[in-house]
Structure formats: C-alpha cells, structure tokens
Measured scan of single mutants.
Amino acid sequence: SDFTIRIGDRTLHLKNVSEEILKILEELLRRGIDFEELRKIVEELIK
C-alpha cells in the first residue's frame, strides 16, 4: 500500500509498503524518531 509521512514541513512518500514495514515505521514515529533517521531507515528497507 502507499503511505505518506509528514513531519513538520517535510514529506516522505512510500509506495508498495508492506503492513509489517508500516507497523515498524509507526512504532518509530511513536518513539519520536528524527525525520532524517526515519528517511535513512526507509531507504534501507525499500532497497
């Protein structure tokens, strides 16, 4: 499924993301992860 994360004025667009990855990202966001850290993790996950 497609997913968009907005943190402040920044946006991260994800396409064809599995439910498992979404759950991980949601947990990281709940813990207050930094946007740049989140972006790096996402890039690793979707390689």
Rank of each mutant, 00 (worst) to 15 (best):
S1W: 13
S1C: 05
S1L: 14
S1N: 11
S1V: 13
S1D: 07
S1M: 14
S1Q: 14
S1R: 14
D2Q: 01
D2M: 00
D2T: 00
D2A: 01
D2W: 03
D2S: 03
F3A: 03
F3N: 01
F3K: 02
F3V: 13
T4V: 13
T4R: 05
T4S: 05
I5R: 00
I5P: 00
I5E: 00
I5K: 00
R6I: 15
R6A: 10
R6V: 11
R6T: 14
R6P: 01
I7H: 02
I7R: 01
I7V: 08
I7N: 02
G8A: 02
G8Y: 02
G8M: 02
G8L: 02
G8T: 00
G8S: 01
D9V: 04
D9W: 02
D9H: 09
D9M: 05
D9P: 05
R10I: 07
R10F: 12
R10H: 08
R10E: 07
R10Q: 12
R10W: 13
T11A: 04
T11I: 11
T11H: 09
T11F: 04
L12R: 00
L12I: 08
L12M: 10
L12F: 12
H13Y: 15
H13W: 05
H13T: 12
H13K: 09
L14N: 00
L14D: 00
L14Y: 04
L14G: 00
L14R: 00
L14S: 00
L14W: 03
L14F: 09
K15M: 04
K15P: 03
K15Q: 04
N16T: 02
N16H: 07
N16C: 05
N16Q: 04
N16G: 10
N16R: 06
N16M: 06
V17I: 10
V17F: 03
V17T: 03
V17G: 02
V17M: 04
S18G: 05
S18C: 02
S18N: 08
S18L: 01
S18K: 06
E19C: 07
E19H: 11
E19T: 15
E19P: 15
E20D: 14
E20T: 09
E20H: 08
I21C: 03
I21F: 13
I21W: 10
I21L: 11
I21A: 12
I21H: 15
I21R: 05
L22F: 09
L22N: 03
L22Q: 14
L22E: 05
L22Y: 10
L22G: 09
L22R: 14
L22C: 04
L22A: 10
L22I: 15
K23Y: 14
K23P: 11
K23H: 12
K23R: 13
K23Q: 11
I24M: 12
I24F: 10
I24E: 10
I24Q: 13
I24K: 13
L25Q: 00
L25N: 00
L25R: 00
L25S: 02
L25T: 06
L25E: 00
E26A: 15
E26P: 08
E27V: 15
E27P: 08
E27I: 12
L28T: 06
L28E: 07
L28I: 07
L28V: 09
L28C: 05
L28Q: 07
L29Y: 07
L29Q: 04
L29V: 08
L29A: 05
R30E: 08
R30N: 09
R30H: 12
R31V: 09
G32S: 09
G32P: 13
G32D: 10
I33E: 05
I33R: 07
D34E: 12
D34T: 14
D34A: 12
D34K: 11
D34L: 09
D34S: 13
F35R: 02
F35G: 04
F35Y: 10
F35W: 07
E36S: 08
E36D: 14
E36A: 08
E36G: 05
E37D: 09
E37Y: 09
L38D: 01
L38A: 01
L38I: 09
L38E: 01
L38S: 01
R39L: 14
R39D: 05
R39A: 12
R39C: 04
K40M: 13
K40F: 13
K40W: 10
K40D: 11
K40A: 14
I41M: 09
I41D: 03
I41N: 08
V42Q: 02
V42S: 12
V42M: 06
V42G: 04
V42E: 01
E43Y: 15
E43V: 09
E43T: 09
E43D: 14
E43Q: 08
E43F: 15
E44K: 10
E44S: 11
E44N: 13
E44H: 10
E44T: 10
E44Q: 14
E44I: 09
E44A: 11
L45D: 03
L45H: 07
L45K: 06
L45T: 06
L45S: 06
L45A: 06
I46S: 10
I46L: 14
I46E: 11
I46A: 11
K47Y: 14
K47G: 13
K47D: 10
K47R: 08
